[in-house]
Amino acid sequence: MMKTPTSSFIACHDCDLLIARTRLQKGQSLNCPRCHAKLFHARLNPIERGLALAITSLILFLPANLLPILSLSIFGQQQSETILQSVLSLYDGGLAIVAAVVLIFAVLVPGLQILLLTYITACLQFSIAGHYLRQSLNLYHTLHGWGMLEIYMIGTLIAVIKLKDIANLEPGLGLYCLAGLIFTTCLTNSLFDTQHAWQMVKQRRNSGEAQP
């Protein structure tokens, strides 16, 4: 394949500085010399690790959403809460918009991210054609930062402190699954990135062009 000038340079996404492309050793990362943005991180087995984390998150996602996170007892009365129930209570309380916001940021976006990650990493790991790979990667990139499970978790903690004077509170199984899910999400963010996946997509396309 002919070497075009665009393949010998990279540009910083934060300050548009043009930099000559360099080869990185595994584990090394490249920062922009001008604005210090992280341009590339040569992670170890990002696809394989991404797939493992996606499957773990997939297993934890349903119990984290369906099992009670907290249960409260006061004067013999009991009430337990799941993420979906908190959405419903907000809706019943007349705040449809806030209910939608919580549903989107605490349930739909994290769920979609896990499904997309599973699809992307499985396609790349097992060399499956993946007709929606491009769209999935774009959507995954767009959703970055809009999943807010860890903030929901801290919110739960603050609710516990606000209520602990007046009632007995018990953590439910859902809370442990949620904690696990937050852990895997954090690991995913530090071990996997879409840039590496895009490079694999590019390589695949180039090798496809070479042998039609």
Binding site: L70, S86, V98, Y152
Partner: peptide, 20 residues
């Protein structure tokens, strides 16, 4: 930016739990 969403989630949890 995203961390100011905290109060919304606190309300969500409180509203669901305290319905007695």
């Amino acid at each position: 930016g995203r961390w100011s969403m905290l109060d919304i989630f606190v309300i969500a949890v409180l509203v669901a739990l305290v319905q007695l």
